[in-house]
Design a protein around this nucleic acid. Structure first.
Lengths: 160, 160
DNA sequence: GTCGCTGCAAAGTCTTTGCAGAGAG
DNA sequence: CTCTCTGCAAAGACTTTGCAGCGAC
């Protein structure tokens, strides 16, 4: 039962996302294309934080018929980022990773061994951040926090 | 009087830094060159967070006789970063900025208008970060936090 | 003297752009 | 039909690498 509920939930969320996207396009006189839909869908269905390249690979794998170009991926990601539908993450390594912005706010904890990115939220930190910006005279817009460490998987690998 | 004290303080700090650097080089069978010294000095004396390019410009300005190549700047920054003497920051925009790692730990607040980066520390946040990593089974190594907003200077520009 | 370092230029990455044909509205 | 999108390939930005001569030790 709960599996069914989760599934419905996911669908509702995705449909909401999709209609937001369509609205966004309409508002700006842009067109809704299969490529754009697939990119949004992949971003939604992937649990990973994707690089433009990994997103492109994923699309070519799942929709080889579309023969989507990497340029389209970059263009769509820029579009989505400008509209705050996705957020780009640029930690350490070269290149950015992208995630859907529609999710709740959260911060990231990154494994320095395998590059895996996990998410977390901490209300206390959120509150402090607001105060700090205020004290420094900044008009706060966004904030992000990263913790770097070694994840459990890599820790156990190292013990072997 | 206090100005004199500050100056001495700075000198002591820099000499410490320099001798650490020399030790590092010696330990690894590397050589101490004028270029490397100048790069360290510029990183130390600049209040800004420098990009490889801005660092290169700065060096060409202050030491035009050396005719330092950008490749050397990149190579030295990598060396310093690998040895944890400098830290690289990669927020949003393309390219990294570098800062001396010898300074006390701090986080960053970045102006989304002019790119200016300020620093701050908050103990409460530091404490929470440690707890979070623990809870998630991560072996914490580093952490960093950024707040994005509009700095006072840009705010007043916008009012005009 | 030896062996690492440097500047230069060429090669690599990752990302953006120009263009002509394809496709959404 | 119009005007935007797309894939392709070329161009750009940023960074790294190969090489021959230079310089620290």
């Amino acid at each position: 039962m709960s599996a069914h509920t989760d599934f419905s939930q996911r669908c509702v969320e995705y449909n909401k996302l999709l209609s937001d996207f369509k609205q966004l396009l309409r508002d700006n006189g842009l067109k809704f294309t299969i490529q754009r839909e697939v990119i949004l869908e992949m971003l939604y269905s992937s649990d990973e934080h994707l690089t433009p390249e990994s997103l492109h690979h994923l699309i070519q794998e799942k929709h080889p018929d579309l023969n989507t170009g990497i340029a389209t991926v970059y263009r769509t990601l820029s579009l989505l980022e400008d509209s705050d539908m996705v957020t780009s993450l640029s930690f350490g390594a070269q290149g950015k990773k992208y995630e859907l912005g529609a999710k709740d706010h959260h911060d990231h904890i990154i494994c320095t061994q395998c590059g895996e990115i996990s998410e977390f939220v901490d209300d206390e930190i959120e509150t402090r951040q607001k105060k700090i910006a205020e004290e420094l005279g900044f008009l706060i817009q966004e904030h992000s926090m990263q913790i770097y460490g070694i994840c459990q998987v890599c820790q156990s690998k190292m013990k072997k």
